[in-house]
Each structure stands twice: as structure tokens, then as C-alpha cells.
Design a protein around this nucleic acid. Structure first.
Lengths: 246, 246
DNA sequence: CCGGGTCATTGATCGAGATCAATCGCCCGG
DNA sequence: CCGGGCGATTGATCTCGATCAATGACCCGG
């Protein structure tokens, strides 16, 4: 059993306060939300919910990473979403989960029982407005991802995934230092394969190839150093300014 | 120049009145929308807007079909959205188009200038609520599509596309007759390839293979007859009840 | 210090789909 | 009736990534 991550006392202490579904709520609205929220923790590897299960809550990721994935009868699986801190889980109005949700790291979620949340959403336009923004962002990300799945080579897929992860967690911890960037891969090779529509062997081979070509440096299995971010971007196949604004 | 499709006189005559972004609006709200709307028509093959262009309007598709697609510098392209009647084009709050939009058939759109629409959205919760529902549906569709792109075989991709098109246009014209279903493909082989992440040759070969195996019958190049819909569904690789509820 | 488990790497081979190329069918205009 | 253009089909070959298989690196518990 790993140690549980710190759980904020009140919403004002919350690290995702200004990015999550509650971002536009203030004063009274925030108090109402605070009254119905509760925290749930999961350990790395645990399943949060299975596709088809009844969902009695919706939630925001506070810390950690979770994945959404779909599986075909014969076992082929494709990841269809990556939930980072502040991302929202669940669909108001839908009582049943559409995807398998798995914690890939230790995970803390801020949960709201579904029914009260839906009622509040009806009464409080700020929640629905914020959820719409977030959903539109996710749709853009999904479309970027479709280009990756449909048209990119294995090497480009790996480079793209690395740059996506770097960008997203840079935007969370307003990364100070310039120069060689360094970060931990929060995913196993298998999870990366499920994300990219590849096999884990191909993922491993392409990471080795990028290492051989000096695009990345490995420190152990999971820690990645990128000496030249622009060089990595060239490998993604995207045009310079590229895509998703976080 | 082909003949222009019929354009409804008023919103109450409009064929997409109860499915589009205006679905929840009544009385006064509907009048306001009606006051700022205007129609635009495009011929099959025309580009509606280029990625990166300024968008001065958002719009609903009234009749016809349009596609959203992304292109890489070297010319590889991936379709990322298919807009059928009642679907919404544009993102409130974003002044610039993110995708290339092309009319694949003659197309009529009901447009709203972006700024007034955004103001109305702020004042009228029903519009934002409906847009949220529609966006969540699109996100689900995009995720289904990601499974297709990442994990399905070429044959499964073709079968899936056929069943998606059949389902979606059956839901529009509440198809009366049972028995052998018949419909027109609204896409060229090349557009199908862009949708499915394949080459047009592979699309052609797989369609021929499905024909040889008796799953479909062709009437000319574009008209498809499906003698046994369940047989087609088996070929998609999805489990029976399968996925997107329209 | 050893043995088992998990995750990752690397090698050998295979095959689905891409690529290159020729041909066909159909429509339309001269 | 002919010729050109466009979309679609079909064939031959190649290649990237999948598959099958062995080995390696690391961690933890006994």
C-alpha cells in the first residue's frame, strides 16, 4: 500500500481550483459544490470503473493520472482519453460508464454524486459553461489524436506522445528551467502502445531508435531527457506551431 | 451549377428544428435566433472554410454533408469529423477555424454571426445546454472512431463506416421499410480512405471483397444494398449492441 | 544471496496494407 | 463517334509494424 497523496482541506487550497469544472464558481456556488464533494483515492494500477457499470458519481482528477479505454471482444484495446489533474470524468445525464477507467499512477479524485451535481448544473450556469469549454478542448484533442492514429508513422507517434506529455505537465507546474527538459513517463510501454495504436514491441523499438539518434536520452526506463525540444517537434510530423493549446 | 436545395421559410418549417443547437429554444428565444440567422449554400466539392481562416459565423447543417479534415505538410490527410444535417460547425469563443471544411454534397447551412451568437449563448442557457449535449455526443463518436483508427483491420473499418452511415441516415428519415436496406454512399473512395486512415486502393479492394463475400451488393459505384444488416455488423468487429446511439 | 515476478529490450520472421502502375467504365463536350 | 477526364478497379511488389520468441534489468520477499 503506497502512501496516500495529500488531499486539500478546502476548495481554496485545491491545486486544480482554477482549471477544473469548478473554475468559474465563486462564493455561494463554490460553497454549494464544496458541500456535496468527497474525495476518493486509488492506487496505481487499480480500475476506477468498468465500461457498462453504473456511475454514481462524476469527478475531477486532483492528482495523478487515469486513462479511458475501449476493448473489443477479442482483447484489442485502444486508449481514448488521458485524464490529467483538473480533467473531468463522467457525463452528466448518463448513468452508465462508456469506457474502462484505470489509475495509471496513484490517483485522487474529487467526486460529486451524480444526481445532486446534475441539479446544480441546471441551476448554476457557470458549471455548464466551464464543462462546455472543457469538452470542446477534449474534442480538439481527440481530433488531433485521430490524425496521429490514422496517418502518423510509429516514430512520429512516439515523438508526438512525448511532446504531448511534456506540454501538458509543463502547463501544470509552470516549469521554471529552460535548457534540457526532463520528465517521467507516467505510462508503461503497454499503455503507450494502447494510446498510440501500436504494439508494445514497436513502442520499445522506436524509443530505442530515438535514443540512438540523440533525440532523447533515457535515465532508467521511465525518466526522459530532451536535449532539444525543437528537434523532438520535428520528429512529430506536425507543423511548427502545432495544434492543441494545452 | 446545380439547383439549390429547398430552404425553409421559418424555423418552424425547419427539418432540423428539433435536433440542432436550437432544439431547446422556444417562443422568444427562437425568435431572437431567427432574427440573426441567414442561409448559405455550397455546391458539392466546394470548400466551406480553410483551417486557419477567420470564421465570422457558426452554423448548423440543414441539408447535405460536410467533412472536417486535417492535413500534414507533406499532404497526408485525415478526416476528423463528418457533419450531417443538424450538426454544428464552429466553436463559440474561437475566432479561427481549426479544420478544413468541405461540402461533399450540395450543402445548406443555417448561419449565425459569431459575436451575436456568443452573446445570445451567454444570455440563453438553453443554447449552451444543447451545445454541451451535442459536443458530448461528438466526443463519444470521436472516441469510437479512435478505436476504429487504432485497432480495426481494413475490412472492419469499411464495414464500420457503412454501418455508421446507414445508422445515421436511417435516424434522419425514420426509414420505413425493413428487409434489404439500400442507400447511397455520400463519399468518394478517396474521402472514405481519408475517413478510415487507409489508401483509396485498399478501400476499393475491401469493398470488392465484401461484395464477393455477399455482405453487400453494389448498384453502380455508389449505391449499396445490404441484404443482411446483422451480417454487416458482425464484420465491424463491434460487439452486438454496439456504441454510438446515433 | 537467490528465485520469481514484472516490465522492457532485442531478434527473426511474417503479413496487411502501402505504393507504383496499368486498365476500365462512364460521362460529357466536340 | 471519338477523345479526354475523373473516379474506380485490379495487379505486382515492397515495407512497416505485427507476431512469435528469447533475453535482460530491476525489485522485492524469503
Amino acid at each position: 500500500m503506497t502512501e496516500l497523496a495529500a488531499i486539500p482541506d478546502t476548495c481554496s487550497d485545491c491545486p486544480i481550483r482554477h482549471r477544473a469544472v469548478c473554475a468559474k464558481c465563486e462564493g455561494n456556488e463554490l460553497e454549494q459544490l464544496e458541500a456535496i464533494k468527497y474525495y476518493k483515492s486509488f492506487e496505481a494500477g487499480q480500475t476506477v470503473i468498468w465500461s457498462g457499470d453504473e456511475m454514481e458519481f462524476v469527478a475531477s482528477v486532483v492528482t495523478g493520472i487515469a486513462t479511458l479505454s475501449q476493448t473489443m471482444e477479442d482483447g484489442r484495446t485502444q486508449m481514448v482519453g488521458l485524464l490529467l489533474p483538473s480533467d473531468f470524468l463522467g457525463r452528466p445525464g448518463r448513468p452508465v460508464a462508456s469506457y474502462d477507467v484505470t489509475a495509471t499512477t496513484d490517483l485522487v479524485m474529487c467526486c460529486f454524486r451524480r444526481k445532486p451535481f446534475e441539479q446544480m448544473m441546471f441551476a448554476t450556469p457557470h458549471i455548464g459553461q466551464r464543462l462546455l469549454e472543457m469538452t470542446l478542448d477534449e474534442l480538439d484533442a481527440a481530433r488531433e489524436w485521430m490524425l496521429l492514429l490514422g496517418r502518423k508513422t510509429a516514430r512520429e507517434k512516439i515523438a508526438s506522445l512525448l511532446s504531448i506529455i511534456m506540454r501538458r505537465d509543463a502547463s501544470l507546474m509552470l516549469s521554471a528551467a529552460q535548457g534540457p527538459l526532463k520528465f517521467d513517463l507516467p505510462l508503461t510501454r503497454e499503455a503507450m502502445a494502447d494510446y498510440l495504436g501500436l504494439t508494445l514491441e514497436t513502442v520499445s523499438r522506436q524509443i530505442s531508435a530515438l535514443r540512438r539518434d540523440g533525440v532523447i536520452v533515457l535515465e532508467g526506463k521511465r525518466r526522459i531527457i530532451v536535449p532539444d525540444f525543437d528537434r523532438l517537434l520535428e520528429e512529430t510530423g506536425d507543423d511548427g506551431d502545432g495544434g492543441v493549446p494545452v
